[in-house]
């Protein structure tokens, strides 16, 4: 028996909106510690890891570990039927081939339940070791989204370079080139507008903008995004999900031919 009640149901709507274009089908893993997901995009270039810790739910009952295979587009369709301020409850029986999403309005005058068929998904689970990064950039998520969107009108790839001077996003295409430099800005008055750069060593990596743009669908979840870089390793783009967890996108770099 699984029963997860999330008062901030809008968070789950935003999580699905940020996943559904990158991943078609995925297993949600439910255990005593939380509700999580790990999935790759269909071309195995990017990976997403989601964790919503059990403490973040108003009620969290998970009698035994369960894996719920869901089509994320269909799940997003169902969650779109919830209002942003609805309380969302996810329910499933151990042997059931379906999951129920219950939506309650904050004043309890409307209660809806949507039942969705589960799928058997044969997915590969990857072990991601804890890594020390050469550079970690924390910046406003809206600013990062704007940069990715702007650069993708010029080129297909972005070179992210971190130096003492700041973080530089560069692209080149048929019509020309573009460079955007963001300098460190502690923004003490408005911490959500801060850009903080922790650099052990300068680093420069190239990534496909198509995937970066897809990751920025998570922008409504968090004011800040963290971009962690190390030479010859995938970049990690992380958005915090309120106080309860995170959504992390991993993207393999491009290398010169």
């Amino acid at each position: 028996m699984l029963e997860l009640r999330l008062v901030q149901g809008g968070l789950l709507k935003k999580v699905l909106e940020s996943l559904k274009d990158l991943v078609n089908d995925a297993n949600f893993d439910c255990s005593a510690s939380g509700f999580s997901l790990q999935a790759m995009d269909s071309s195995h270039v990017a990976l997403v890891a989601l964790l919503l810790r059990s403490e973040g739910f108003e009620h969290y009952r998970c009698d035994r570990n369960l894996s719920l295979g869901m089509n994320l587009n269909n799940m997003a369709k169902m969650l779109k039927c919830a209002a942003n301020d609805d309380i969302v409850t996810i329910k499933a029986d151990d042997a059931s081939d379906s999951v129920t999403f219950m939506f309650e309005s904050p004043n309890q005058d409307k209660i809806a339940d949507f039942e969705m068929k589960l799928m058997d998904i044969d997915s590969e689970h990857l072990g991601i070791p804890e890594a020390e990064f050469q550079a970690i950039v924390r910046m406003p998520s809206a600013e990062f989204a704007r940069i990715c969107k702007d650069l993708s009108t010029i080129g297909d790839t972005v070179v992210i370079s971190v130096t003492k001077e700041g973080v530089k996003f560069s692209t080149r295409g048929d019509i020309g080139t573009a460079n955007i430099v963001c300098r460190q800005n502690p923004s003490i008055d408005k911490p959500e507008e801060a850009t903080i750069i922790e650099m052990e060593e300068p680093v420069s990596l190239t990534f496909a903008l198509r995937y970066m743009n897809s990751f920025t669908k998570a922008t409504p979840l968090a004011n800040q995004v963290t971009i962690s870089l190390s030479a010859d390793l995938p970049v990690v783009v992380e958005y915090r999900v309120a106080e309860m967890g995170y959504i992390r996108f991993y993207l393999a770099p491009k290398i010169e031919e």
Binding site: M40, H44, T157, Y250, K254, I255
Partner: peptide, 14 residues
């Protein structure tokens, strides 16, 4: 431009 690496080249199956 460039060769796109796969994520599975970096992380092992568990």
């Amino acid at each position: 431009t460039g060769i796109q690496l796969n994520i599975t080249e970096f992380y092992r199956s568990t």
